[in-house]
């Protein structure tokens, strides 16, 4: 039994299969809500699942120019990174499958892995759209990564721990959105940047560079990148909700809080016009980073002088 329980935890519930399915469900909610905001009907509930099945069944076309190991390995690495990061967050509001002091940093790095993989994949393809997309993906990574990290550090400082589980337990009595509204907004918008959702979709702006770094991907590879992104969405929502919205302590609170966040994100997605890449970088470094730094300073001062 000792080996079976971790296996189930990893592969079926709450990580693994369940996570992927929930990710697809959230992707559907996202698409449906955006569609409704845009006065469209939107997809049916099983559409993301159908998309994945279809992509897995389709032929994968390998461009002649690519390094095949990278071409096939990168989607796997991206999905693996996203799935692994799920181990340390309070998924479904349950205790994380694994935790150790400092797992917050590990999670954030694992969350960046899919983006790095997309960047590498674009570079590996060396198609023109892919190259420009890859450049933009990585430029954007440098733009939002630091503010996002700083925005998650705020709660960690207050809770006095680098362990997600500990922070989650601490925030269950403290709604940090009230004391650190700036951090919350930056974290939420940073998550949108991470997921390349509008208005931060310059790396895959279809009207300029088709599908950006993933232009040459088809079939399984594309499906894995897409699923990786859905998983990233769940993990990211989970982190932001548990840090700022009073923690996660059960399935209902998980669903409620993350869906509220997702609603906010879809509203922003349908309200805002795509930013150019220079505007994205400018926004993050001129406003995002400075605001969060100011807030961190306040937290440190308050913690230092008012024990």
């Amino acid at each position: 039994m000792n080996t079976l329980t971790p296996l189930i935890t990893l592969l079926i519930f709450p990580a693994g299969l369940t996570l992927i399915l929930v990710g697809m469900f959230y992707e559907w909610v996202d698409r449906k809500l955006v569609a409704r905001f845009q006065n469209r009907i939107g997809p049916r509930w099983f559409q993301p699942f159908a998309d994945a099945v279809k992509l897995f069944a389709k032929e994968q076309i390998t461009p002649a120019i690519v390094n095949p190991y990278l071409f096939f390995g990168l989607p796997v690495a991206a999905l693996a990174g996203a799935l692994t990061s799920a181990l340390y967050v309070p998924l479904m509001g349950l205790t994380p499958a694994s935790n150790f002091p400092g797992d917050l940093i590990v999670t954030i790095y694992l969350l960046s892995l899919p983006t790095m993989c997309v960047g590498l994949a674009g570079w590996n393809n060396s198609g023109r759209f892919s190259l420009i997309g890859a450049t933009r993906t990585l430029t954007q990574l440098f733009a939002y990564e630091a503010p996002f990290l700083l925005a998650l550090l705020g709660p960690a400082l207050v809770a006095g721990s680098w362990q997600i589980n500990t922070i989650n337990r601490f925030t269950q009595d403290h709604w940090l959105i009230l004391t650190q509204p700036v951090g919350f907004i930056v974290a939420l918008i940073g998550l949108m940047g991470k997921l390349e959702l509008p208005p931060f979709d310059a790396p895959e702006a279809e009207t300029e560079i088709v599908a950006g770094a993933l232009t040459e991907y088809s079939g399984r590879g594309l499906a894995m990148f897409k699923i990786g992104k859905s998983v990233e969405l769940i993990v990211g929502l989970c982190l932001v909700a548990s840090f700022y919205l009073g923690g996660l302590n059960g399935v209902p609170s998980f669903l409620f809080k993350t869906l509220i966040l997702l609603l906010g994100m879809t509203m922003l997605q349908s309200l805002l016009t795509r930013l150019r890449i220079d505007q994205t970088v400018g926004l993050w470094w001129r406003f995002g980073a400075i605001l969060v730094l100011a807030q961190l300073l306040v937290i440190i001062l308050v913690k230092g002088f008012l024990p």
Binding site: Q38, N39, R40, P199, S270, L271, T273, R274
Partner: peptide, 13 residues
Amino acid sequence: AAHEAGFDTLFMY
């Protein structure tokens, strides 16, 4: 024009 700018909501409306 809105679609080219990445403002799909205006496009749809």
